[in-house]
């Protein structure tokens, strides 16, 4: 379970990214974090694993106060928190296997990791995860040889290789096409339910969030302005999160996107049919 208590983040420039954010995520719950850009979504999830330093408040992961840790203790806490990134953030020149095994870095000594001699259990787990995300044919391929959707699957496998107690997901679908986006969201939510893993997913795509998550937290200017099940997300609530004009514009954009996706799908089916025809 994750408990965030009156979390504050003020940048050196004086910008207040987060002002008194509090919420609690129980086991197995997938939370979608929505809000306009600059609302503090990225800051919030990076405060949790301390990639950026919160300036106030408390973050409890089960019984550990993450805000008080330093050095080795912080690294030990980080290995319990898996993270999935917007642009995949794979190490491009390492192989799929090396990227997945890098999820164990917090558990093994430097020399073991330097010579890539990971314990057999870690290797077994990595093979299992690579299988699970459907990349068993690409184990020794370099990450930069994969497509966007495949890369994000490697990102998911890397996060799960950590045996995390919490998953932080930063815009997992921002660089993917609509169809792949849905597949990736489905995969993330499935593993969270399987492992009873709490997760926080930053996502700008409200419709996609509503499709998959258990609960939505709306952030505006660093404060929580909505917290509830996706069904309660009325257009009033959305107006409160995004402001009047933005929400209308977003809905229009969404409709256009959906039409584009349908067109693309139709085009693809037709092309496949044509390819199947004898010449």
């Amino acid at each position: 379970m994750l408990t965030v208590q009156s979390l504050e983040k003020r940048y050196k420039t004086g910008d207040r990214a987060l002002t008194g954010v509090s919420f609690r995520v129980p086991r197995g719950q997938v939370v979608g974090l929505i809000g306009p850009s600059g609302a503090g979504k990225s800051s919030l999830i990076r405060c949790i694993n301390r990639l950026i330093e919160p300036t106030g408040g408390k973050i409890m992961l089960n019984d550990t106060d993450l805000t008080r840790l330093n050095g080795a203790a912080l690294r030990k806490a980080r290995r319990r928190i898996g993270m999935i990134f917007q642009e995949y953030a794979l190490v491009e020149r390492l192989t799929v296997m090396e990227n997945v095994l890098s999820g164990r870095l917090g558990y093994v000594s430097f020399w073991r990791s330097f010579f890539r001699r990971f314990p057999q259990t870690d290797v077994d787990k990595a093979f299992g995860l690579i299988d699970h995300v459907g990349l068993s044919d690409h184990v020794d391929k370099r990450a930069d040889a994969l497509s966007g959707g495949q890369r994000q699957r490697v990102g998911i496998a890397r996060a799960l290789e950590q045996d995390p107690e919490l998953l932080l997901v930063d815009e997992p679908t921002a660089s993917l096409d609509p169809k792949t986006s849905r597949q990736i969201m489905r995969l993330i939510c499935e593993v969270c339910r399987e492992r009873e893993l709490p997760a926080i997913i930053n996502i700008h795509d409200v419709v996609l969030a509503q499709m998959f998550v258990d609960r939505i937290i709306g952030l505006r200017a660093g404060a929580v302005v909505f917290d509830g099940p996706p069904a309660d997300l009325s257009s009033d609530a959305l107006t409160q999160i995004y402001g009047e004009e933005d929400w209308a514009a977003m809905r229009k954009e969404k409709e256009a996107d959906a039409k584009d996706a349908a067109d693309a799908d139709a085009f693809e089916t037709e092309r496949l049919e044509r390819m199947a025809e004898p010449a």
Partner: peptide, 15 residues
């Protein structure tokens, strides 16, 4: 971003 991802796994400085 790549360094941030590796840091987030709990890796040490040398790793």
């Amino acid at each position: 971003a790549q360094a941030e991802a590796i840091r987030s796994t709990g890796a040490g400085w040398w790793q």
